[in-house]
Amino acid sequence: MSALLEARGVWKYFGAFAALRTVDLEIAAGSTLALLGPNGAGKTTLLRILAALSRPSRGTVTLAGGDLRAARRRIGVLGHGIAIYDELTAQENLQFFATLYDLAGPEELISRWIEQVGLARARHLPARQFSRGMRQRLAIARAFLHEPEILLLDEPFTALDDRAAALLSGLIEQAGAAGRTVVISTHQLREALALATDVAVLDRGRMAFCGPNNDEVRAAPEAFYRKHTEAAA
């Protein structure tokens, strides 16, 4: 399969600190990549670069061989923050992002997603009145609303309640089945490997491993992870 999202020789500096060092990564169309690594390995930094939220200090990132920033309509991001405005209702939050993405038939789309994430009865309530789980589900709807071809999920299962975690797992599986490309940055090995077709391991800013999620990986994920991270040293 040809690479849809491609990083070549990517470095990222924060002052004198190199958060990423010569990272090469090819993500094939339709694949689900689990991006693993310990805290501070550079997962979030790499994901932000892949989401066109940050520029590499050196190296290039392309989407289908073209400019990544120009193609960000094709990307959906679910980061650490929920990216929801507390003073707006669920409906207004999604309406705002639908306008930014210039979605056709936004009302129907918004209604469908509000139903899907189980917020139909709360759609006209301000998000500040939502429980944590409801906010998380609204954030999921926001990230999936424009039906992106590529989903970049940064620690998506962290702090999710059971309902939101089940919803997200289902959506990731559906996205994979529909031929969409998914990148999941996570510490949660088993959850990520259950969904992933490919695995990449970052360690101290370097790409320690990048390959398919094969039987060898699945048979002993912890041992595989330790082998490729600093903990093994």
Partner: peptide, 14 residues
């Protein structure tokens, strides 16, 4: 910046 809304804005096609 409250809930990283700026990231969602910047990631949008706007």
């Amino acid at each position: 910046t409250q809930h990283d809304c700026l990231d969602a804005l910047t990631a949008s096609p706007a």
